[in-house]
Simulated assay, not measured.
Amino acid sequence: MSLKTLGLAALLSLAALPALAQTQTVRIGATPGPHAQILEAVKPIAAQKGLDIKIIEFSDYVVPNAALAAGDIEANSFQNQPYLDNQKADRGFKIESVALTVNFPIGLYSKKHKSFDALPNGATVSIPNDPTNGGRALLLLQDKGLIKLKDNVGFKPTPLDITDNPKKIKFVEIEAAQSPRVLDDVDAAVINTNYATQAGLDPVKDPITRENPKGPYVNLIAVRSEDKEKPWVKALVESYRSPEVKKFVEEKFKGAVLTSW
C-alpha cells in the first residue's frame, strides 16, 4: 500500500471518529422506586454504547405513555403488556414494546390481619382503580380463593364481574399510587411493588398473599412505533438486559423484583 493510500485511509478514519463517538441523549420515563433505580444501573452500561440516559420520573401510570407519544421522551419503562394494550386501545397511542424487563409480583398487604385466612367477613379491601392493575388485583384474589369471577373475563375484570364473594368483601377502588396510604383505613390493600417499596414495605416478607410471578405482567420498554428499529433502541435493550443489570436487580431487590432474562 502506498504512502498516499495510507494517508487517505488515515484521513477517512479520523473523519469517521466524530460520528462514532457522538453521544445520543435518550430520555426515559419511569415511575419512582425500582423502575428508576434499575435505570440508574443501566446508565453506565448504556454510556459505553454511546447513550446518555436521562431518567424522567412520573408519579402515575397515565402520563408516561402520553409523554412518549407526544415526543417529550424517547422511551418509557414502567408498564406491562396488558396495560400498554389498554392504553393503546383507549388513546390510540402508536407505541410498542421492544423488550421485556422485570416482573414485580403484586401483593395484598394488611396492618390489621397477620394472614390471608384471617381476613374477616365484610372486610374492606382496596384495589387500584385503573383497569389493568384493578383487574390484576381481582385475578390475584380469585387465584387465592377469596372470590370468583365470570368465565373468560380476560385481564381487566372489575368488581361488577364478581360472581361469588362468600366473605362479602367490600372493594374500594383508589389510585394505585395512593394504595399504601390507605392501609390504616382498610382491612387489606392490593399494592403494586414499586409503590410498596416507596412506602417502606418489604414486597417479599410483608404481603399476606402474593401473585404468582409467572404470567402476562412482566414489564417492558416501550418506544414510538416509528423508532423501534433505530440503533439506539437496540443499544438500550442490550444495556438493560445485560449481566451487570441482572446482578444489580438480584442483589438490590432480593426477590421483590424478578428479571425476565
Rank of each mutant, 00 (worst) to 15 (best):
L3I: 11
K4C: 00
K4Y: 02
A9D: 06
A10H: 00
L12Q: 05
L14A: 15
A15I: 12
Q22A: 15
G29C: 04
G29M: 04
Q37C: 03
I38N: 04
E40D: 10
P44Q: 04
P44F: 02
A47Y: 04
E57I: 05
L68V: 00
A75D: 06
N80M: 04
N80F: 12
N80I: 04
P82G: 05
Y83E: 13
L84F: 08
Q87V: 13
R91H: 14
G92H: 10
S97K: 13
S97W: 07
V98E: 00
T101W: 01
N103V: 14
I106K: 05
L108Q: 05
F116G: 00
A118Q: 07
L119P: 01
T124G: 05
S126P: 12
L140E: 07
I147L: 04
I147W: 02
K150S: 02
D151W: 08
V153Y: 00
G154A: 02
I162D: 05
E173C: 04
E173N: 09
I174V: 07
D184K: 09
V186T: 03
I191M: 01
A196R: 06
Q198D: 10
G200Q: 11
V204C: 09
D206V: 08
E211D: 09
G215V: 04
L220I: 12
S225W: 00
V233E: 06
E238C: 03
F248I: 06
K252T: 09
K254S: 11
G255F: 01
G255I: 02
